[in-house]
Design a protein around this nucleic acid. Structure first.
Length: 732
DNA sequence: ATTGGGAAAATTTTT
DNA sequence: TTTTCCCAAT
């Protein structure tokens, strides 16, 4: 292998991938194997060694964070900016394409992006209009249906509508699409679908980009859905009849595919091997993150899945600490244990930000938070409401959208009476009906209705005042820089005054957020250069940014704090100390995944992802009793724990909980009672039979030996405390 | 137009 | 249990 600076710090496999000459490549990159590094070095290699122009490279990622990181690292290596290179998310890149070719894509120049919240509102309205029962046909489900179809590349006319359900959803889909087209609105899935159709149907555009992007690289390929892969195929010139004319590299890990439930197709990796000729496959299996124990356990767990491409992580590191396994009594006990362990870690001089607590579902965070609060351990939760998704911010953005495009019905609906200006449901319904009858947008309908005096009197005046307000705002503001535009708009529209008039902490935050939005606009100039295409006004560019790139706001907070997040959002991250809580049958794997076949494998991959986040130490815990939605459950430890090699596990002995908590609670557990409890041969949740009361479930246990009592919830009879010594219980 | 009560639902999430 | 949503009453 050529000795080269770009290859100096890479292992053999990584070097091979970076310097490959093959046209098509699959890099199977295990967790912690230096995937991003390879991708970054590969692009730098192409630019520096192969003398490829940045103009000819397109790199696709799934998050904006990943895209930004990649661009930053490449520029760092090269020492100059690579603006001409297209790096971005599927949605970001397709959006850019549609802006540049809005006419060919049959879109208005000022088309706006509909986020999923807006999409749901619009669907709700359509369902109402069709006089469908909203209980029977929830907007949520319609949204799911439509997006799933679009992800498959299907338009309404592709659906046969044989079954009744499908037929109704198809009709909703049809009307929804008409509404979007009329208002110049494009939802997330539509960005991909339109971009696909654009390339498919327009040979000139397609060939132009095929010529341009000689090198296409796709990250996290296991997360691509059908339409995304189809788009890549079109762009790279591969089709049934022709070979690809371009170089395509895909990077991914089938074992980390955890988004199948939202349309991602792991099979795309295998399909890639069939669609593209002579693909070079490189496995990155050396792990630079975790200790050997953790890797062995993770390898064993994932080995239980079928249809893997096959990959085994290894490390040059030592075996490291065993994985701690803690069996908690209930979720409170579990949370307390985690908090206690973190205290110890912190006392040993380690940073709190090096600790992550991972759970299957967001609802689990509450108990943990309480325990951390109690222990005065600072924490940060990932996955809250994003800045651009907040109500007040969306209100302000809706005004901006209306300035950009009067046809944006979704925006108009949002702000026509926010703040209240005497346009109630009645008036709004008239405008909606008028728009539908005339086949126009609501803005045009409102204008006409006032002119024709169909809307008159107070309602007419209010509507006219609103129309004037928007027109006047555009006049007043159009020459201002973005920040000042927004500042003026939120003030002149009365939005700011409305939130200032509200009282309470929440209202104060809202006012702050509005000010922050002005700030965001001011700062936006700095990095809008990549969006600075033809047909991209600064306003449209900012609105697209707000819709597509609102994700990474929650990253910075300087305090040293423990990180709480779902297993899904932990993908791609790493932490020296990782806690996985609630590792129980029914929770993880989740009940729903057990009910549907095929979902279990994905849960196992999720387990694998979680485990491989840990660098030094992994702690797994489960609760024998857990309260969920107000109901007590008795779960068994997750099957995934049983799949780990026993020697990698360390069963944490029960701590004397009573030290910290009132002995009066001995009813539940008085220190040693757990072991005694086990000696009796009964477990919480176990099914037993009593000669008189029949069958029931063991709920609780207290006391030792002859004095011990046991609580059982008998089916039909209810819960009873019995003396263990006298109750003639049988296991069943 | 706002508030409050009652019913129903309640994984995982990016764009 | 908690949250969210809808309708009804003010």
């Amino acid at each position: 292998m050529t000795q080269h600076l770009l290859l100096a710090q890479l292992n053999d496999k990584q070097q091979q991938a970076v310097a490959a000459h093959e046209r098509h490549m699959l890099v199977l990159a295990g967790a912690g194997s230096g995937k991003t590094r390879v991708l970054v070095h590969r692009i730098a290699w192409l630019l520096q060694e192969q003398r490829v122009s940045p103009h000819s490279i397109m790199a696709v990622t799934f998050t904006n964070k990943a895209a930004a990181e990649m661009r930053g690292r490449i520029e760092q290596i090269l020492g100059n900016s690579v603006r001409a290179m297209w790096i971005g998310t599927f949605h970001g890149l397709t959006h850019r394409l549609l802006r540049a070719h809005f006419m060919d894509a049959k879109l208005p120049q000022n088309f706006q992006i509909l986020d999923s919240d807006d999409q749901q509102r619009l669907l709700k309205r359509i369902i109402k209009n069709k006089n469908l029962d909203e209980k029977r046909w929830p907007a949520k489900q319609a949204q799911w249906f439509i997006n799933a179809k679009k992800d498959e590349g299907l338009r309404p006319h592709h659906l046969d509508g044989f079954d009744f359900n499908e037929r109704t959803f198809k009709e909703i889909y049809e009307e929804y699409q008409i509404a979007c087209d009329r208002a110049g609105l494009v939802d997330f899935a539509e960005l991909l679908l339109r971009a696909h159709e654009l390339l498919r149907d327009n040979a000139i555009v397609r060939e132009h980009y095929q010529r341009r992007f000689r090198h296409i690289l796709v990250d996290e390929f296991q997360d691509t859905n059908s339409i995304q892969y189809a788009w890549i195929k079109l762009l790279s010139g591969v089709s049934n009849s022709a070979e690809a004319t371009n170089y395509v590299t895909i990077v991914g890990d089938d074992d980390q595919s955890i988004y199948g439930w939202r349309g991602a197709k792991v099979e795309n990796i295998q399909q890639f091997l069939r669609d593209y000729p002579n693909v070079l496959t490189i496995r990155l299996e050396q792990n630079y993150r975790s200790s050997n124990n953790i890797l062995q356990a993770a390898n064993q767990v994932i080995a239980n899945n079928n249809d893997r491409l096959g990959k085994e992580l290894w490390t040059e590191d030592g075996s490291g600490d065993a994985i701690d396994l803690y069996a908690a009594f209930n979720e409170m006990d579990e949370a307390r244990y985690v908090a206690g362990q973190i205290e110890q870690w912190h006392e040993q001089g380690h940073a709190l930000q090096d600790v992550a607590i991972l759970y299957r579902s967001n609802a689990q965070s509450r108990v943990i938070e309480e325990a951390l609060l109690h222990a005065r351990i600072p924490y940060r939760i990932y996955g809250g409401l994003r800045f651009f998704d907040r109500q007040e911010v969306k209100d302000a953005l809706a005004y901006l959208r209306l300035l950009a495009s009067r046809n944006d019905d979704a925006a108009l609906e949002r702000v026509i009476n926010t703040p209240t200006r005497g346009i109630g449901d009645r008036t709004l319904a008239i405008i909606r009906d008028g728009a539908r009858a005339r086949g126009t947008t609501m803005w045009d309908a409102a204008k006409q209705l006032v002119q024709e005096k169909i809307l008159s009197g107070r309602a007419g005046n209010s509507v006219q005042a609103f129309l004037d307000l928007i027109d006047r705002l555009e006049d007043d503001v159009s020459d201002f820089p973005l920040g000042r535009q927004v500042d003026t708009i939120i003030k002149s529209s009365g939005l700011m005054a409305m939130y200032q008039a509200e009282k309470g902490e929440k209202a104060e935050t809202r006012v702050e957020n509005l000010k922050e939005l002005v700030n965001a606009c001011d700062n936006f100039h700095a990095f809008d250069e990549q969006n600075n295409d033809e047909n991209m006004t600064p306003l449209n560019s900012f609105l697209a940014h707000a819709a597509l790139e609102s994700g990474d706001e929650q990253a910075e907070e300087h305090q040293d704090a423990v990180q709480l997040m779902t297993l899904h959002s932990a993908k791609g991250l790493e932490f020296p100390l990782v806690f996985m809580v609630g590792v129980e049958e029914g929770l993880f794997p989740s009940q729903q995944s057990l009910d549907e076949s095929g979902r279990l494998a994905e849960e196992r991959r999720l387990m694998y992802v979680g485990m491989t986040r840990a660098m030094q130490k992994l702690v797994i815990s489960y609760a024998e009793q857990r309260r969920i939605y107000g109901q007590e459950f008795f779960h068994k430890v997750s099957r995934f724990v049983g799949e780990m090699p026993p020697e990698t596990l360390h069963h944490v002995r029960l701590q004397s909980r009573t030290q910290h908590h009132s002995p009066a609670l001995g009813r539940f557990h008085s220190g040693a009672s757990h072991e005694t409890f086990e000696q009796t041969g009964y477990e919480l949740g176990q099914r037993v039979r009593h000669p008189k009361f029949g069958e029931g479930t063991v709920l609780n246990y207290e006391g030792v030996g002859a004095q011990s009592r046991i609580q059982i919830n008998f089916d039909g009879v209810g819960s009873k405390w019995l003396m263990t010594a006298y109750a003639r219980l049988e296991r069943c």
